[in-house]
Each structure stands twice: as structure tokens, then as C-alpha cells.
């Protein structure tokens, strides 16, 4: 099972993502954060050793536009706070309401983002995420 964080300030969008992920039965436990700060607190506040679930990297579904820290700023902070040995312990997927070229380029430049999907998140996006896990031998 894939340990998952859904980071989005819009409750309905978190709900949609959760429903799509639940449908596959591959994502659990599933945690939600209402903004970047909330996510960082939860992510780094979890007990040591909870980072990996059977050595499967954690999935982080990250919205871009959020109050306080936006998605990119949250990832910057995440990178700053991750120790080198934990840098590959997560797969980050950005999901945004627009497919703006600037945002896509910025996502690539983070060096952490595996996929960029536009909202609403659908079964196709979830299948792509699962393919990534399979291709890397985690499933």
C-alpha cells in the first residue's frame, strides 16, 4: 500500500482526489493537509520510520495555488528539510487547475516532481501514478 498525502486548500478537491485514490485500493493510509505548512507539520511530525511503508515511497499529491506557502514553496521547504538519505522516499505529483507552461517548467526544475496533472484528478492520472510505482518495482 502506498502511504499518501493530499495537499490542497479546497476541501472538495481533496475529496475528489481521495475518492479517485480509494477506488484503486492501493493508497493507504491517506492523510490530508489544508496547505503547505499543515503538510510540512504532518509530514515531519510523523514518527520516525513511518516514512516508508514496506519500502514504498510516499505519494504526495500537491496543489500549486494555496494560501501561505504555495505548492512550489512547500516543495522547496520539503527539500531543505529532508536529509539526503530520505530524498527518494517520496514521489511528488503536482495537480493544478491550469496547465500553464510556467508552472510545468517550474515543476520540472524542482527535481522532485514526477507528474503534472490538471484538475479534476481522474482515473487516468491515478493509473499513471500507479504505473510509475510499478515501473520502479515497488508494486
Amino acid at each position: 500500500m502506498i502511504n499518501t498525502y493530499i495537499v490542497d486548500d479546497v476541501q472538495s478537491d481533496r475529496y475528489i482526489a481521495r475518492r479517485r485514490l480509494q477506488k484503486t485500493g492501493c493508497f493507504a493510509p491517506m492523510d490530508e493537509a489544508v496547505d503547505g505548512l499543515d503538510f510540512l507539520q504532518k509530514y515531519f511530525g510523523r514518527p520516525e520510520g513511518a516514512a516508508l511503508s514496506g519500502n514504498i515511497p510516499t505519494l504526495i499529491l500537491m496543489d500549486i495555488n494555496m494560501p501561505e506557502l504555495n505548492g512550489f514553496e512547500t516543495l522547496d521547504e520539503l527539500k531543505n528539510r529532508l536529509t539526503d538519505d530520505r530524498l527518494d522516499h517520496q514521489i511528488v505529483v503536482m495537480f493544478s487547475s491550469s496547465d500553464n507552461d510556467r508552472d510545468i517548467a517550474r515543476s520540472v526544475n524542482t527535481g522532485m516532481v514526477e507528474h503534472f496533472f490538471t484538475k479534476p484528478i481522474d482515473d487516468f492520472a491515478i493509473a499513471e501514478i500507479l504505473k510509475t510505482y510499478r515501473d520502479r518495482g515497488f508494486l
Binding site: 479546497v10 478537491d13 475528489i16 491550469s98 500553464n100 484538475k119 479534476p120
Partner: peptide, 14 residues
């Protein structure tokens, strides 16, 4: 484009 599309995407997803 970003913030006016956001609610439409939410409504579509729902």
C-alpha cells in the same frame, strides 16, 4: 486562467 478555472475543475470533478 488559474483561479477562474479552479472552481470549474472542482465542479467538473464533483
Amino acid at each position: 486562467s488559474h483561479d477562474l478555472r479552479a472552481p470549474l475543475a472542482t465542479i467538473a470533478g464533483l
